[in-house]
Design a protein around this nucleic acid. Structure first.
Lengths: 340, 340
DNA sequence: TTGAAAGCGGTACCAT
DNA sequence: ATGGTACCGCTTTCAA
């Protein structure tokens, strides 16, 4: 503690060489002892000396140096572009991180701020992650995948609307959700269906394909789809409700339960009866949706659990050759309650 | 592309030496060119040759090697223990990551699964982060802080109920929230106040101090506090509501708006009038709370923005000597609506 | 203008 | 049972 002067502030980080010196052994021995290398026998007294020296110096191994030497990392890179798209998605994301940690991976969240496709891939590759799990927020091309693989990534997994060549693509098509909602409404006799498009920028990634899905379902049956811009605040919802009757809609799919709750309340406050005059359906099956009256109908989304995805990552890392099994990534189901 | 045989699958990652070889220059030159080192003049033809070689090989620099050599990283480590404590907190967390990215830091989220205090600090130190921002989910002792600093961390910042010696501690006391809610209810004449304690494990970190804060406020005025266990589902809320009248409570602070909405609905369904028979107050000031009838009273929490915290991190990294200015981290304010 | 070479902090092979 | 040493990929003097 107080052996050398002037060490408090600028004392350099101790290295294994320092430990070796203090213990009176070589760096090799330090490495053997501290890693419990089984292929080599170190006497108990030596072990103790090394351990004590390490302890005294507060030695902490340098992960980067180690993985440089090892030639690989245990880093899983999770690119993120959004702020937030939905509570469900957030939960999934957190779960995934947890599960990966449990499997002893280091999770690095990489915000690909303003980077496009292959540029982003390049930036990620610099970290030499053992796996990349792209949740579809940054478009990854097959060249990007190739680059990552060549830079050592054992697993490149994408979740998104379409397959990416070379990657293990888990197809998760947001269109299904819009389609499911529209089909439900059409089945209940609605012909003029509004589709809420959140004005918040991060949500476009999801809202756009959901609109497409709804439109596809509608055109098959001759129903009309009307996109409706809506910000997540009471004023915006009030304004939309005020001009509701001009729109001539008998139903609305409101992106998710949060927007649906907001809009439904505004409609009711404007004297529009739900579901008699206008049916409302959300998505995500939030608990809170069941608390309103009428209870909110919704599209329940069974996402693959973070746990399962983490297991897939681990499997692919261990055996990169194995073909990607098909996963039922997302199952959507309309839940009829009272608002539709 | 097709010069050497058998390279598709097992082609090793190209290094700067490979680029140098292909360009017919030394590794030094490659480094100069690719980093645009201004202290050295390289002829334009050489630059081009190097660039082309790098392009052709798909060369990507190795971040770990670089920072090993440089002796420091741009990594900010964010320890996380929870799954989710509140939407507000989630938002804050995301904002922080964004802002850090914008400042060109690499954000590493480290799930400190089952690691305690100094053990966790050691694990973090292995990554040699330039900064650690601990959101209070893992208790950090002054020794832990010391360890991190000795391993090169310029900034160790903690957000939590109490200061940590050696770190820049931003004090954010959850007790204030409980206190604010209780004071509000007491001010409205309530004397017997239930405090909801979520059964979900991750939330104890917040719920416990909030209960303490409510209790402190109550004892100052002779009011009674009654902790109430509640899971986030309708069955649990229904059960609690069913035995509500036995509890003899005239008010309840329900942890946050989500639990408050759930409980309020259950109380109403059980025939208990809100706020006449029982006042209800939540926390977080969620938009959704305004959609119920009566509108939910709440505790509004003004958290420091992720942006500001990121700026603080950056400032401390650049000038570690500077004393931590005091920040008004969290301002709480009771918002009276209709449920209390 | 360019190259040779020394290291950054570990690990593991090969001697002793 | 240990120590010497080469090497992982990159940066940066110092010389030429």
């Amino acid at each position: 503690m107080s052996q050398t002067p002037k060490q408090s502030a600028e004392r350099p980080v101790p290295t294994s060489a320092d430990v070796a010196r203090l213990a009176g052994v070589s760096r090799a021995t330090v490495s053997y002892v501290l890693n419990n290398t089984s292929a080599v026998r170190i006497s108990e007294p030596t072990r103790r000396r090394v351990r004590e020296a390490a302890e005294e110096l507060g030695y902490v191994p340098h992960a980067a140096a180690r993985s440089l030497r090892a030639g690989h990392t245990r880093m899983v890179l999770l690119p993120t572009a959004h702020v937030s798209v939905s509570p469900l998605y957030n939960r999934f994301f957190n779960e995934l991180q947890w599960a990966l940690r449990r499997l002893d991976y280091t999770v690095v969240q990489y915000g690909s701020l303003g980077l496009e496709g292959d540029e982003a891939a390049r930036a990620w590759a610099e970290l030499r992650p053992v796996a990349v799990v792209s949740l579809g927020e940054v478009a990854l091309t097959s060249q990007g995948v190739d680059l990552l693989k060549r830079s050592g990534a054992k697993a490149v997994i994408t979740l998104g609307p379409e397959r990416v060549e070379g990657a293990h693509s888990l197809v998760m098509d947001q269109r299904e959700i819009g389609g499911c909602a529209a089909t439900h409404l059409i089945g209940r006799g609605c012909r003029n269906i509004g589709v809420v498009m959140p004005e918040e920028p991060g949500r476009k990634l999801f809202s756009q394909p959901r609109l497409v899905g709804a439109t596809e379902a509608a055109t098959r049956t001759g129903a009309r789809i009307e996109p409706l811009s809506l910000a997540y605040d009471e004023a915006s919802a009030g304004a939309l409700a005020a001009r509701w009757r001009q729109l001539g809609l008998d139903a609305v799919y409101a992106y998710n339960d949060e927007y649906a709750m907001l809009l439904m309340r505004a409609l009711q406050d404007a004297g529009i009866e739900v579901p008699r005059e206008t049916a409302v359906v959300g998505a995500d099956d939030l608990l809170l949706g069941r608390l309103l009256r009428p209870r909110l109908s919704t599209v329940q989304i069974d996402l693959v659990t973070g746990q399962r995805l983490a297991e897939l990552v681990d499997r692919v890392v261990r055996d990169p050759g194995a073909e990607p099994e098909r996963h039922d990534l997302m199952v959507t189901r309309a839940v009829h309650r009272e608002s539709s």
